[in-house]
Design a protein around this nucleic acid. Structure first.
Lengths: 154, 154
DNA sequence: CTAACTTACTTGCAAAAAACAAGTAGATTG
DNA sequence: CAATCTACTTGTTTTTTGCAAGTAAGTTAG
């Protein structure tokens, strides 16, 4: 039997191929957690408040690793834990996430403060630069907090 | 029984809410077709080369309309046909689509010519402005062609 | 006027994926 | 060494998708 081509895409459109890689309800949330919240373990993803099931999470982590968007390495100080990290390809999703954030905050009722979002839309480039810096330097501080339904940053 | 809240979101995060609205393999392709290809009928979406099934397409069109991302109106010159169009909320997805396009073209093997994509990444603002102009003026000319696997624009 | 055709769907069914609830292996802590 | 913790896996049920037909309303050709 002729091996099915590894790249049997629906079409050659870049958007279509993106959606094949991470076009679902969960993948980009994992990327978000890694990118702006400083999460890097299975447990943290699971507790991030979205309610992903553990089998689905495991599957998504595998898929993202296979797509070379994240890497997985055993934690150096705790052998149980696995440290997930974005690759360069993964951090390049920052502009996509940022535009989703801006659109969502503008058009849907979210827990994100409007003022903060308006500012982010203005400072696009600065925020992307800061995101990348944090990634490069492994800065563990979150860039953004989780936005609960009634998030108040006072 | 207490009516289930209409906005029973997983979390208040704008990204999460975006994914609830169009986080699947098909929704953004319909938006793409409307935005840059000048498609506006059921049949055109169906024949756009991605292979969406008619029941799924019908479902997605309903969902997008319910989310106020598109509108549906009977065609003025052909009573069988329904004319779909992006709302303002829908055209505001242009930056998201553009970033997906750029990421996909950079990191995956696509049918889009690298040179063209590099140029688009540079002229982000101009392209977004042109996209919006086309939408506002109902310009029927496609901004981009479908990218087949061996697309050659010569 | 009407028969053939077109458009935008719907319906029924099988297959795949997601959600839910438990359980487990290996590392670690007390 | 017993209890705990982390990152999963394994069943099972429910939901979504994909595929093949079919249909209703509007249109065109004769």
């Amino acid at each position: 039997m002729p091996a099915k081509s590894k790249s049997a895409h629906r079409s050659g459109c870049p958007v279509s191929i993106c959606l094949e890689v991470f076009g679902d309800r969960w993948s980009l949330l994992i990327v978000r957690d890694l990118m702006v919240r400083g999460y890097h373990t299975f447990k943290e993803f699971q507790q991030s408040g979205e309610g992903i099931a553990s089998n689905i999470l495991a599957g998504r982590l595998q898929k993202l690793e296979a797509a070379e968007i994240i890497t997985a390495e055993p934690d150096e100080t705790d052998g149980r834990s696995i440290h997930y990290r974005l690759t360069e390809k993964g951090i390049d999703l920052a502009p996509v996430l940022l535009e989703l954030l801006i659109w969502g905050a503008k058009h849907e009722e979210t827990g994100a403060p409007c003022a903060l979002m308006a500012e982010m839309a203005k400072n696009r480039e600065a925020i992307l630069a800061e995101t990348r810096r944090r990634w490069k330097e492994r800065d563990p501080n979150p860039l953004l907090p989780p936005f609960g339904k009634e998030s108040k940053l006072s």
